[in-house]
Write a protein that binds this DNA or RNA. Structure first.
Lengths: 131, 131, 131, 131
DNA sequence: GTGGTCTAGACCACC
DNA sequence: GTGGTCTAGACCACG
């Protein structure tokens, strides 16, 4: 699994790591029960401090996606995310609003924006289809 | 102009104000040359500290959308945003990626997500069309 | 609010802080909407590092009991805990089992154990009744 | 003797094994002088690493409950636990406090909690009475 | 002033 | 080997 951290991205490092792993989950690169790379490995690979990776894994644990056990490692759970449908749609709407606002501000046509969204989704599904 | 701040929104207050004003620009509620509401008015209306509104206006100045004139208030400029096309698309892509990731995580179908994006765009254009 | 940390207690420091605050909530010493003592204040008072208190507040935030906002402080939410009744009883049962096992091991009579439990509960309710 | 390990239980594996054996002692399933199952047997049955079982048996030795004889296995001693009454009550009080705090937090009535404690104690004594 | 993030490095607990 | 905790101290972001 490839965990990338972009220092120019304003998003906090630990959340970028969270996103990397959530992306790996979405693409099917890791499956429920699988062991995640160790905290130390990710720290070396992404060139960040161990504590920062710890923080990311803690977040994933609070999201119910990961379970870490002392001495044996961190594993993907088989849980579904726990939010109800309303909450989910609220989150999606918030991001969609932001997308529409930025696009309008930069005068990027709606259809082009939608093409970009399709593109992002396709990148996630690319690997999934191979299973 | 209505400036709303939602304390449950994790986005910082000053950026919520920035977004409100950018939204007003996008919908045509304010036009180049128009005076913006005073910092004090916004602070009272949105029930936030004046420093926070100040911070928002400063941000808008940095974006080149607003110019403050000594003693007479803040006015909308007629500037186009200053980023080049590549930068703009990079920002859009980042948001689109996030949208796709969240949607996949919550198992919301792509077409529904796109419908929501169209919706968000339509809300922005609603008022514009009336002009 | 008094936050106490006992170095001889094997429970991690940050969880002892969490318990102190949960205890303050249970006794009614803090109410929904109230501001909690600042992270820095707790750190000084309990003689621990700021980061340790941060960790405790983060945990409380993940439990849905507290909301922290940059620049303004940490506040008690008005949420009810989010577990369903089954989960709650499972947690209670686990502690009850441990209590029964230790008591049996130390040959402490059941009725004495129950008296101690009543005592612990009374300490929590003492202050509440004064409201 | 049945040793069970629940991976969803946050308690460390070796302590879960310790508790299983202490429970067997409390119910009278094993008596002073009896031989305990071999480390290897427990490891196979509970599907854990032999080192983990070793660690559990070591802990039981430290508690004075078990003595290992070279080459012939581990046997239950006829020792009484070595803590003085104050220490014992302190441990009981700590668990009782935790029980009261969780119950209050989850709004479970005190009498129901006590019924659960009686239940836990009854489960321990059930088998004892048959002797 | 508030809380948030990150680093460096130490030590502990568990398997 | 694994993850967990804590410290010290720096710097940033927000109101």
């Amino acid at each position: 699994m490839i965990i990338t951290v972009d220092p120019s991205n304003p998003k906090p490092t630990y959340l970028q790591i969270v996103d990397s792993i959530r992306r790996a989950i979405a693409t099917g690169a890791v499956k429920p029960g699988d062991q995640l790379p160790t905290i130390r490995d990710v720290a070396v690979q992404a060139r960040v401090n161990r504590n920062t990776v710890s923080r990311a894994y803690l977040e994933l644990e609070h999201m119910g996606l990961v379970r870490s056990r002392q001495g044996s490692g961190s594993f993907l759970t088989d849980n579904e995310p726990g939010l109800d449908q309303r909450e989910r749609l609220k989150i999606i709407k918030r991001i969609a609003d932001e997308l529409a606002l930025e696009a309008s501000h930069y005068k990027i046509p709606l259809e082009q924006v939608i093409a970009i969204v399709r593109d992002s989704a396709a990148e996630l599904n690319k690997e999934t289809e191979h299973e």
